[in-house]
């Protein structure tokens, strides 16, 4: 059980860190100053969540791990984030849609997790839920704005959906370590789909058709993107091992 709890905690941490790392690539390059600040804020929230989860995982491991050793010294095969979170930023439409799909999921997940058996995870989830609620609102508004904005923004949203939809199925398929958490992850699928339908409808976007879904991230089988993310993320700790920063 403890091993499962550790892996599950790492999975939650990795999700937040990798999406936070991706969003942080926008910092200084956003389409308008206010949104540059907003996406950076979301990135900061996610990295904060990741730190809380890593700290807890380090505690559970009792082997001298730290938040940084877990983030900086695990390999791509050890990372357990969902494939969706590691997808490239693409244009603003793709970033927005990735955030919307993921925040919709995280919002439902944290709601469950905050009443879960593990008190520490529940506490982190409760705190993070406030942030996820804001991320969900912000990204929903943008999905609507872009979907129902100009012809170009509408087309870009269609393209983003085409790009990302295949990575949404994995979120609702429990990995082994998720099965004993007391959360029925598959049961989140329906409310998630309902939310996406509502927002897509308001955004005048068609709900994506059923396609083959990619999976593997939760078990450490990633897209080719993750290796590059980690090579930047971990560069300093790999180049200068064992230093304080």
């Amino acid at each position: 059980m403890n091993n499962d709890l550790i892996n599950y905690t790492l999975h939650l941490a990795d999700n937040s860190l990798i999406l936070g790392q991706r969003n942080s690539e926008w910092c200084g390059h956003g389409p308008v100053l206010e949104q540059d600040i907003a996406i950076t804020n979301i990135s900061l929230d996610l990295i904060g969540q990741a730190r809380n989860f890593y700290q807890y995982a380090a505690l559970l491991r009792k082997d001298g791990s730290t938040e940084d050793s877990l983030a900086y010294l695990r390999t791509e095969r050890e990372y357990k984030n969902c494939l969706l979170t590691e997808q490239p930023n693409g244009d603003w439409a793709q970033t927005i849609l990735r955030q919307f799909f993921f925040s919709s999921y995280q919002y439902l997940l944290y709601q469950q997790l905050q009443t879960g058996e593990d008190k520490q995870l529940a506490a982190i989830a409760e705190k993070s839920l406030k942030e996820a609620t804001y991320h969900l609102r912000w990204s929903s508004e943008w999905v609507i704005r872009l979907g129902d904005g100009t012809e170009e923004s509408h087309d870009r949203m269609l393209k983003a959906a085409d790009e990302l939809w295949r990575y949404t199925g994995e979120m609702f398929i429990a990995a082994d370590y998720e099965k004993k958490t007391g959360i029925d992850i598959a049961a989140l699928k329906e409310p998630w789909q309902k939310r996406v339908k509502e927002i897509f409808n308001e955004a005048t976007l068609p709900y994506p058709e059923k396609i083959f879904m990619q999976e593997g991230g939760k078990q450490g089988k990633h897209t080719e993107h993750l290796g590059y993310i980690l090579s930047q993320l971990q560069y300093m700790q790999r180049a200068y091992p064992g230093c304080e920063w």
Binding site: I37, T40, L44, I47, G48, Y72, W245
Partner: peptide, 27 residues
């Protein structure tokens, strides 16, 4: 911003992100 993705610890990454964000706010 050039060092956000490569900051050497999660704490430093968060500090740097917040700092660069402050600059956007000043702007």
């Amino acid at each position: 911003g050039n060092w956000i993705s490569r900051a050497p610890s999660l704490k430093r990454k968060a500090i740097l992100l917040a700092k660069v964000q402050d600059e956007a706010g000043h702007g």
